[in-house]
Amino acid sequence: MIRDITIGQYYPVDSVIHRLDPRTKLAGTMVFLMSLFVTSSPVGYILATLVLAGCIRLSRVPFKFITRGLRAILVILLLSVSFNIFLTPGEPIFRLGFLKVTKEGLLLAGFMALRLVYLVIGSSLMTLTTTPTQLTDGLERSLRFLNRFGVPVHDIAMMMSIALRFIPILVEETDKIMKAQTARGADFDSGNLIQRAKAMIPLLVPLFVSAFRRASDLALAMEARCYHGGEGRTKMHPLQYEHRDRVAYILMLVYLLVMIATRFIRIPVL
C-alpha cells in the first residue's frame, strides 16, 4: 500500500500539460478543486469529469498510474461515505435497525465520494506532471506578494519542496526496512489489529531514526553550501509565461464560470 502514494511523484513524459508553467498548473488545480465545491448539480459533475478526463488524456500519464493514489485514501473514502449515508436527515428509503438510509444521504454520499476522488486525482495529476522543483518555484512566485505581510514565502516554499522530495525517499526507506525485517522473520500482514500495530515497531523506530539522520545531514549540506534563505537568490530557470499558459488561463476562467452557473441550473429529476 505504501507504494501506492502517487502524490509527490513525477511521471517523466513530454506533453502539453508537462510544459505548462507551474503557476498555471497550480492555478488550474486550485480552480478545479474550487469548482468541485462550487457545483452541486449532476451537470457540474459531468463537466468536471470531462475536463479531468481531457487533462489526463493530454498529460499522457497512463490512467492506471493516476488512480493508484486512490488506494491510499480508500479508508477515508469508505468512512465519509458511510457517515453520509447513515447520518444525513431527510426522506428515509429504508431502515437498518437504528440506522436509516435517506435519499438525501445517498446523494450526499455519492457527491462526497466523487469530490474526494476527483480531489486526489486532480492534485496527483499536477504533481505527476510537475517536478518538485518547478512546483515550489511556482508556489514561491505566486505567493510572493505575501512577503509584504511578513510571511516568509521562500522558507515555506523550500520546506515544502524538501518535504515533497522526502516522500519518495521515505517510501523507499520504509520499503527497505520492511524487507530487512521480513528477512528476519517479521510479519506485517497477518494477526489481529493489536498484533499488527505491535509489528509496526520494528519498522517505525528505524524509520524515525533515519528520517532525523537524513534531515540533519541535509541541513548540514545546505549550510556547507552557504544557503541563507531567499534574499538575493537568483534562479537557474526563471519562470516565463508562454502562449499556451494564456490559453490555459482563459479556459480555466470559462470553466469556472460555467461551473458557477451550474449552481443555478436545476434539473427537475433530482
Binding site: 528477512a183 528476519r184 517479521a186
Partner: peptide
C-alpha cells in the same frame, strides 16, 4: 525459508530498533 536463507541488507545497522543489543538480536 527466510530462516534458512539469511539475508543481511546493505547498511543493516539502520534496521536496529530494540532497547538493547541482546533483545534486538533475539528478534529473528
Amino acid at each position: 525459508l527466510r530462516g534458512h536463507v539469511g539475508l543481511v541488507f546493505q547498511y543493516p545497522e539502520y534496521q536496529l530498533f530494540e532497547e538493547d543489543v541482546l533483545t534486538d538480536v533475539m528478534f529473528g
